[in-house]
Design a protein around this nucleic acid. Structure first.
Length: 224
DNA sequence: TCATTAAGCGTTG
DNA sequence: CAACGCTTAATGA
């Protein structure tokens, strides 16, 4: 269980709920911290909670038959995910791995389903979030077939700062160039060159083990 | 052939 | 000690 104030801080969607629903939500959430590299959940788990990133950075990934690490998406602080697994009551299709020390909020399945049954505001949030994700999946088709390395890096960074999926974040992202390459699906060298190109254009600042976004709008449309 | 990548290693913060 | 830059051999378009 967490406090009302804390809930409102970590869960943007909670601000639209009725008081009774906020109460319901905060009682159904516990927090847990995972060290860097730890599995937050494994592929195949029938996980019984809906999860939010309180602080840190995680990724959804799977391991291909040839043993390669295939990453699907990065998960920033402020993001909530896993509703598909709960609603459909099916096993997780991906691993969730902490990229650095990451604090997670876990909402029990019963609490999630209770809000889903009764809260209009909560459903509105879910629709909005699913819609935003759908937009991303559509973009992935173009991404896979047509984009060059710098465009890919730019889009991936823009996704991590998507204000609908990860609200309330700052402009700084703590991530190594190697990890960014894994998220993006390109090599470390290409990631490094891409970052430098984006920095030259004034879209972001490259730092040691991190970047600061200067122009999110342009990053999202870079190369169009 | 030319470009890109993974791997290894030296440097650095 | 991990992130980064650089070199090199392998890979593949």
């Amino acid at each position: 269980m967490i406090s009302r104030e804390h809930l409102l801080k970590i869960a943007f969607w909670a601000r639209d709920l009725a008081e009774s629903e906020i109460e319901q939500a905060r009682r159904g959430i516990v927090e847990k911290t995972f060290p860097a590299g730890a599995y937050i959940c494994h592929r195949g788990d029938r996980l019984d909670s809906w999860t939010g990133v309180v602080d840190g950075l995680a990724k959804m990934r799977t391991v291909s038959k040839s043993g390669k690490d295939v990453t699907f998406a990065g998960l920033q602080a402020g993001g909530w995910f896993g509703e598909g697994t709960i609603l459909k009551d099916e096993a997780r299709r991906y691993d969730i791995v902490a990229l650095r020390e990451t604090r997670m909020a876990l909402m029990s399945r019963a609490t999630f389903l209770g809000l889903f049954e009764h809260s209009v505001a909560f459903n509105r949030f879910l629709v909005r979030q699913l819609n935003e994700r759908l937009g991303q999946f559509i973009a992935v088709v173009e991404y896979d077939r047509t984009l060059e390395a710098p465009e890919r890096v730019a889009r991936n960074i823009a996704w991590l700062f998507n204000p609908v999926l990860f609200p309330g974040g700052g402009s700084h992202l703590e991530i190594s160039q190697e990890e960014l390459g894994l998220l993006t699906g390109i090599s470390r060298q290409a990631t490094n060159k891409s970052l430098q190109a984006l920095e030259t254009r004034g879209l972001l600042r490259v730092e040691r083990n991190g970047i600061t976004v200067l122009d999110l709008e342009s990053l999202g449309h870079y190369g169009e």
